[in-house]
């Protein structure tokens, strides 16, 4: 064997170790779009919150606070659903291009390691709404989402862990500025997604 063969062996070993443990067909565009949905959702929420802030205390106030809660949950739910559907469609397309299977051991591990911290955070956030601790919702969502990303990064592009860490840091910082949750929420779920999605798009998608 020549030197070239040995080098080829090593790169083949690395390649297979990566492909057998990591799902790498993440789509950059879906990240950008998720960020855009979050910004639009955040803007609508902001409008609702300022309108509600102008209401006088009284009967309409009591009933509209319940409506507001439902509306905000609905907006967050819509943003999340749209993001997941977009990510699924675009990732599937990319997986087909890359000749990578959508449903493989690596993608299953990715999903499980992502969903468990995320679902915990989601339920925790709903319980906060139930208890009326609204100010803590945005930090909670950011922190749990960041931990979910960090946890899942073992099974996909390793740079996802930096996005996760940034979300966690943002969530912790937002604890110091309670009452500005929406701003941090839009920064974390909107701006960071757009930046990270664009980086992936430039680095990985465009090359193909």
């Amino acid at each position: 064997m020549t030197e070239k063969d040995y080098l080829k062996d090593i790169s083949e070993i690395k390649n297979i170790m990566n492909r057998s443990t990591r799902f790498l067909s993440l789509s950059g565009i879906s990240g950008i779009l998720a960020g855009v949905y979050a910004l639009i959702g955040g803007a609508i929420a902001y409008k609702l919150l300022t309108d509600y802030g102008r209401l006088e205390r009284g009967e309409t106030y009591e009933s509209s606070i319940l409506n507001l809660e439902l509306m905000l949950i609905l907006i967050a739910g819509t943003v999340a659903t749209l993001s997941v559907v977009t990510a699924y469609v675009l990732t599937k397309r990319k997986a087909v291009q890359n000749n990578e299977k959508m449903w493989a051991p690596a993608s299953r591990q990715l999903l499980v390691s992502f969903i468990i911290p995320l679902a915990t955070g989601g339920i925790f956030a709903l319980l906060l709404i139930y208890r009326g601790d609204y100010a803590l919702i945005a930090p909670t969502m950011l922190i749990f989402y960041g931990l979910a990303l960090f946890n899942a990064s073992k099974f996909t592009l390793s740079t996802v862990k930096y996005l996760g860490l940034l979300e966690v840091v943002l969530g912790l910082v937002s604890m110091l500025f309670l009452g500005n949750g929406l701003f941090f929420w839009m920064l974390g779920f909107g701006v960071l997604h757009i930046i990270y999605g664009a980086l992936i798009y430039i680095k990985l998608d465009k090359k193909r």
Binding site: S20, T21, K101
Partner: peptide
């Protein structure tokens, strides 16, 4: 070499996954 690489980083791998 490929079989060993895949098995080294996973607890176990089934036949069809190795094949693909």
């Amino acid at each position: 070499l490929g079989i060993m690489s895949a098995l080294m980083v996973n607890d176990f791998v089934d036949f069809n996954t190795l094949k693909e």
